Computed example of a mutant assay.
Amino acid sequence: MHSKELLLEAFGRLPGLVRHTLEGLNEADLQRRPAGNGNSIAWLIWHTARVEDAQVASAAGMEQVWKAGGFQSRFDLPLGDSDTGYGHSSRQVDAVRAPAELLLEYYQAVHRQTAGVLEGTDDPDLDRVIDRHWDPPVTLGVRLVSILGDCLQHLGQAAYVKGLHAGTAGAGGA
């Protein structure tokens, strides 16, 4: 297996995790915050998509799906144009409201762009330095692994929050 195939397989699992987490949830379920101040499922899915979108687009020199696909206006959030959720206050987490269908549509569009970038990536490309602000500088391969790890963590958190909702359809184990 080549690196590209491995990355496509790994990133290819994320849309199913998003879809499964969103299944059966209503608007109240999406907005409910554990203990009243944890991150909501809506925020976690939105943030996952935003982080993958922003970082893959930057690494590939492409426009973000958020803007190019019109999702920024469709979500109509009271946040900055380039906001991805890093460092959000409790009020900002509450402000991220969207129906499950829109969250899924946006993530699927982000995934299509990520898969396209990965399809055009060969092993030598993974050694290309894309961020010199770190020591050592960050390569494309390291950034992709970082993005994948972040997405898996947040999707795991969203699935956990779904499981906390008593009576939620499909909220059982893995």
Rank of each mutant, 00 (worst) to 15 (best):
S3G: 01
E5Y: 03
E9S: 12
A10W: 15
L14T: 13
P15N: 09
L17Y: 08
V18L: 04
V18C: 11
L22Y: 00
L22K: 07
A28Q: 14
R32P: 00
P34L: 07
N37D: 08
A42N: 03
W46H: 01
H47W: 05
T48E: 04
T48D: 04
R50M: 03
R50A: 07
E52K: 12
S58C: 01
A59M: 09
G61I: 06
M62P: 00
G69A: 15
G69M: 01
G70V: 10
F75C: 00
D76P: 02
L77T: 00
L77Y: 00
D81N: 12
D81L: 10
G85L: 05
H88Q: 12
S90C: 00
R91K: 13
R91A: 14
A98R: 01
A98V: 03
P99M: 01
L102Y: 02
L102P: 09
L102I: 07
L103N: 08
E105P: 04
Y107S: 13
Y107H: 15
V110P: 10
L118Y: 05
L126A: 11
L126W: 08
L126T: 12
D131Q: 03
D131W: 03
R132A: 13
R132F: 03
V138W: 02
L140I: 02
G141L: 04
L148C: 10
L148R: 04
L148N: 06
L148W: 06
D150L: 09
D150V: 06
C151H: 13
L152P: 03
L152M: 14
Q153H: 14
H154F: 10
L155G: 14
G156P: 14
G156I: 11
A158S: 08
V161I: 15
G167A: 06
G173W: 12
G173H: 14
A174Q: 10
